[in-house]
Design a protein around this nucleic acid. Sequence first.
DNA 1: TAAGATGGCTAACACCGTTAGCTTCATTAG
DNA 2: CTAATGAAGCTAACGGTGTTAGCCATCTTA
Lengths: 179, 179
Amino acid sequence: MTELSGRKAQIVAAARGLLESGGSEAVTMRAIADKLGIKAPSLYKHFADKSSVEAALVTAGFIELTEAFAAAGSGSTERLVALGRAYRAWGIAHPHLYLLMTNRPLERDRLPEGVEAGAAAPILEACGGDADLARAAWAFAHGMTSLELADRFPPGADLDAAWRAGTNALQAPSRANSY
Amino acid sequence: MTELSGRKAQIVAAARGLLESGGSEAVTMRAIADKLGIKAPSLYKHFADKSSVEAALVTAGFIELTEAFAAAGSGSTERLVALGRAYRAWGIAHPHLYLLMTNRPLERDRLPEGVEAGAAAPILEACGGDADLARAAWAFAHGMTSLELADRFPPGADLDAAWRAGTNALQAPSRANSY
DNA sequence: TAAGATGGCTAACACCGTTAGCTTCATTAG
DNA sequence: CTAATGAAGCTAACGGTGTTAGCCATCTTA
């Protein structure tokens, strides 16, 4: 599972702290090094470049999101609704990491195999294996979360209602398929 | 309509060229200036900072997107499908500008009034005035486009089918409302 | 005990947005 | 016609960024 050596883990942890408290702008090689009491160039003894430590952050994010899905209850009757809630909650709880994971083209080479697919699997399952519907559901959830994080909805918007409208619409055909 | 003076328009055009050909990384004050045969500090005689020229790009994007919606035919029976197609097509045609418009928190103060709402209006209208549904539809469209641009779907994914699955699901309740 | 890897360091480079301060030129006021 | 003003360019520079080169101490291992 690509065990991080001690120092590597510390670097990722420091980067994570900076990211969560100050956004991606705050994640600076010099700032990371400062947090560990060393100088920026020393970081390159552990990571090839800044993108590599960002990739480690993104990897952690996908794993945590997968765990959040698992914790969202597998036996629920309205699985898609539960997954949507879990998705949104996780994104809101880790806004900067969520943006880091989704905003830029994903450099798949840098991520451990299967990490991305692991997060996607529960959605596909909740859609009864209908990949097209699963992609639509994922897109809806990502769109809602991303727009909410970017403060894109008008101030008084009832986002719970929008989530309901979307999940209701999307889960209906999946139920029809299961008969 | 906040007429851009000649030089201002040239600066925005240069920035647009850099953006479309090299992504947002390529949009540099020095690069913009180079394209115009001047030096970077001279740009500050026309724009207060880089964010202001980015805001001008984003403004142009919203206006063009609104036009694309208008061109998508207002008389179509399946309006939401047509708008979805127009949205996707516009995003794919201007990927970097689309990301600039949607990826970061929007600085509304810097945009002319109503520009954002103008792009949103057709969606709301196509949803029969149901704001919750409209937000869900917008989120779906944005999610699909954003994920496609970020190369997030697996290589063989049938995105047309995913768009169909989503728009079909989302337009059904809107039609029910219109009876 | 010698060798080699490990993980720090300083100095430096190229690039970034941005500011200060100077000049040059066209327009306008008196 | 001249003087003044403002617009729009310039160079030099500052602090910040990721990153590289090269040096040195320490620790492990043969």
